[in-house]
Each structure stands twice: as structure tokens, then as C-alpha cells.
Amino acid sequence: MHQFKLAEDPSSSELHVERASVSIGRVQIVQDVSFHAHAGEFVAIIGPSGSGKTTLLKAMTGELSYSGSIRLAGMETGKLSAEYLAQMRGVLPQASQISFPLNVSEVVGLGVIDRRQGRDGRARRIRDALAKVGLHGFEGRSYQELSGGEQQRVQLARVLCQVWEPVADDGNPRWLFLDEPVSSLDIKHQYQIMQLAAGYAAAGGGVVAVMHDLNLTAAFADRILVMKGGKRLSFGGRDEVMQADLLSEAYDFPLALTRSGESDVPLVVPGGGSVR
């Protein structure tokens, strides 16, 4: 299924989080979270608002300092330089405000950090990335005049430009860290972007995404980390985690699972009884 070649050292294709804790000011937001992800997988982080999902993601991307250990390709992310990290992973933040009137191709172009790209290669990369997120021909549009969903997709195109090949020349996988990548999109684009992310993983890259939509998570994630109150509530494969009682506990709200038609993907609905 996964047709990429792994580098010799198995740790080079893993994200290892061991007893990571993150504090902002004096408040501890994330406490002793451990899990590991392999490149080639789509890992979703779910949990109620305020459970520390985004904070954990920010620690993994090097934006927040942490205690414990977060290793990407065997290296402690907190010790890597911004330049080095930028070669290994791209980050899609939750919301992106831009301070000056850049147009779409200028925003996306900020992601082209590979200096070997000539002027034409750069323009082609920008065009291809925009096509991937369904914004073909948007190059000359003003970023600030786009809708929230379009802005979100422009940002994703920028991130894709940065880590274009899921596996780098040296055989090491690249990583996508996405903070609620589809929260401001309509259903068509939600599926489009989720397929894009899943495709990135299938091609050998690593994908870690903070998700709010449990049904999209069930449809696309290979493994799921459930957070609650800053701690890890559960971590495992989709079928392990997608359980009515576990999800109900995570969200403090009665949830049930159902299936529609032939699909083997569970649907999460409010309510008491479980169909499984």
C-alpha cells in the first residue's frame, strides 16, 4: 500500500512524543503526553476545546517550549534551528492574518523556501499548489479580499510549497502539522483537503492534524490521539478509539456510533444507544 522507501534508521521516519508537558506562563496546558506517529500515517488529535490539542501541536512544531521529549526523525525539535525545521515540516496555523496587501501568489510563494527553484520553477510550484487546493487561477487575487475558507486553502497551498515532496531527497519523510485544517471550509472542500492530507501520508509523508470534526476524523485518520484536560485520554488505531463510551467520556457528552449503508466508516451522532 505504501510504496515509499524508508530510510535505514527507523527512528528517522517517526515522531516520538514522550512525557511532553507544556506550560504557558504559570499554567500547565499539556501534561505528560506520550505517543508516536510514523510517516505514512495520518494522525488526528481530537478532544474538547481547551484540552490542549493546539498547544501540543505548537510544541511539536517548535513554536512553544516543552519539557519531556519531542523527537522528529530522532532529533529533539526544541533544539533544531528554524531553518532546519523548515526543511522537515510545514505548519498550517489555525488562523492567518496578513499585515500587508499581498496577493495570493505572493502568500503562497512565501512557502517556496527551496532556493534551488528558479523563477519559473517557483511560479510552477505556486500554480500547482493552488490547483491542489482547488484555487486554480487565484494567483493575482488579493488575499485580504478572499473568504475565510479560501484564505485557509491559500495558507495550505503555502505550506504544501514548503514541503512539496512527502519524502525528501535524502529519503527522510517530511511532515505536515495542521491545526484544524478544514474548520472553516464547506463540505466539498473539507473532503478535498482531507483527501489531500491523506494522500500526502499515503505517499510517505507524516501528517498530524488537530481535528474538531469527528466524522471526518473517522473517515480519514489512521490513528487518533484523544486529549482531555491536557492529558492523553487514549491513543490508538481508528477502530480502537472510535468507541461510543470513550468519545462520550472525552467530550462529557453522550455520543453514539452508527454506520450508513455499505460504508465501514462509523458516524458519530449525539445520543445514548450504540449501534455496534
Binding site: K58, V91, P93, Q97, S99, F100, L110
Partner: peptide, 18 residues
Amino acid sequence: LNGLTLGEAAASHIGIRV
């Protein structure tokens, strides 16, 4: 400075020593 138009965090993500 171009990277900084995205904000400090995103600028750092694309490899700028902010």
C-alpha cells in the same frame, strides 16, 4: 520581513530566525 507578514509564528515555521 516578507515572512513576518504572516506573523511571527508562521515566519518561524518557514525557517526565519525571528
